[in-house]
């Protein structure tokens, strides 16, 4: 049962990609870097290349973490919807299969200054 109701009932989602004027949402989370309280919400066009996403908004947002400058993007491990994923940096988000509200998570083994301080 999709909802308990007195008669047939159909809901309308409020966050459809059509509402974002040609852009889409991408969620990005730096694994084990919880200085950032929640995964980032980034609003970008699907034609943007993966490299532009990484070098642009993602790199800018990561700066407050002491590990930010030490990240070697060629060694980063990626998860998309929690499954291993190998991005093509020069292809667009759409060509990389990164749809609206996709969750990316990236793992930087060996880098965890704020965690290791404990």
């Amino acid at each position: 049962m999709a909802v308990v109701s007195t008669k047939p009932y159909v809901g309308v989602p409020r966050d459809l990609v059509a509402n974002f004027n040609g852009k889409q949402l991408v969620y990005a989370c730096w694994d084990q870097h919880l200085l950032f309280a929640a995964p980032f919400l980034i609003c970008v066009p699907p034609e943007m290349s993966f490299r532009e996403l990484v070098d642009g908004p993602l790199t800018a947002l990561m700066q407050p973490d002491p590990d930010a400058s030490a990240v070697d993007w060629s060694k980063v491990e990626w998860l998309k919807s929690n499954k291993p994923f190998t991005p093509d940096f020069d292809a667009s988000l759409a060509a990389n299969g990164i749809g609206h509200k996709e969750q990316l998570r990236f793992i930087t083994p060996g880098l965890n200054s704020l965690l290791a301080a404990a």
Binding site: Y27, L35, A37, F40, L41, Q103
Partner: peptide, 9 residues
């Protein structure tokens, strides 16, 4: 520190 990345809800 300000996190302008906003948040996944």
């Amino acid at each position: 520190f300000a996190n302008y990345g906003l948040a996944k809800l």
